[in-house]
Computed example of a mutant assay.
Amino acid sequence: MTRTRILLCAAALLALSLVDIAQAATGPARARLDAFATGLHSLTGHFTQSLTDINGKVGKTSSGTLALEAPRQFRWDTLEPQKQTIVADGSRVWLYDPDLEQVTVRVQSTEESHSPLTVLTDLKQMDKDFKVAEQGEHDGLLWLRLSSTAKDPQFDYADLGFDANGLARMVFRDQLGSTTDIRFSGWQRNAPIPASDFNFVPPKGTDVIGDAPVISTQPLKD
């Protein structure tokens, strides 16, 4: 799964934590979304993800943990089969690849603007930029589909699948026909998250590429 896809998913999850629950549900999947977001300030959990190409070939499954905290912070740690860390601190997104000893830094607002789901924080914006449709029930989940109305959309569609406990899957299909399937488990709602989890400091000797602030380096905390 590419870094861009991971960022899209993380931004989408962050958006879910900010949904205006006063918005009226328009169907059973939307009702599940509203219930999932009620009173939500922070969220931690586990994920597994896979990419299927246009020919139906499934790539290796990766897995890890994630943490999100309103309004703009998230952390996405891929643990298997290769380690990778993505941290959004509220102003920048840090993409760290320990094997390459490299971190790429980007302005967070730029990353968020590419997510097809961040508009879930604003129903009027969602109705303007996306076609939103209930997809019924399949695979034991209720599904909601977002299709961008942009001239050059990043994705063909993004589907959210909900079970009785909340968001269970996210499925993105890109313009080339590849599909990313992300499954979630072990959600912990509103558990305290250390501030240090969202404060990335590049390990000593790491190449830093992009729009990084002036900072000192120190070993990355395990």
Rank of each mutant, 00 (worst) to 15 (best):
T4V: 01
R5Y: 00
R5K: 12
I6L: 11
I6V: 12
L7P: 01
L7M: 13
L8M: 09
C9D: 09
A10D: 03
L13P: 00
L13S: 00
L14C: 03
L14N: 10
A15D: 04
A15I: 04
L16D: 02
S17Q: 09
L18M: 14
V19P: 11
V19C: 08
D20K: 11
D20C: 07
D20V: 05
A22C: 03
A22T: 14
A22Q: 14
A24V: 08
A24E: 14
A24D: 12
T26G: 12
T26H: 13
G27F: 00
G27M: 09
G27N: 10
P28Q: 07
P28L: 06
P28T: 02
A29M: 11
A29Q: 11
A31V: 03
R32L: 04
R32P: 05
L33D: 03
L33F: 11
A35C: 02
F36M: 13
G39W: 02
S42G: 15
L43K: 07
T44L: 07
F47Q: 06
T48L: 09
S50P: 00
D53M: 05
N55L: 07
G59N: 08
T61W: 02
T61S: 05
S62E: 14
S62L: 10
S62H: 06
S63P: 00
T65L: 03
A67I: 01
A67Y: 06
E69W: 07
E69L: 11
P71A: 00
R72H: 15
R72K: 15
R72S: 13
Q73M: 13
F74E: 05
F74Q: 04
F74R: 04
F74D: 02
W76S: 01
D77S: 10
T78G: 02
T78A: 05
L79V: 14
L79E: 13
P81W: 06
Q82L: 12
Q82R: 15
K83W: 03
T85D: 01
T85M: 09
I86Q: 01
I86C: 07
V87I: 15
A88Y: 00
A88Q: 07
G90F: 12
R92M: 08
V93R: 03
L95H: 01
Y96H: 12
D97K: 02
P98K: 04
P98L: 08
P98N: 07
D99Y: 03
L100H: 13
L100G: 04
Q102V: 01
T104N: 07
T104A: 05
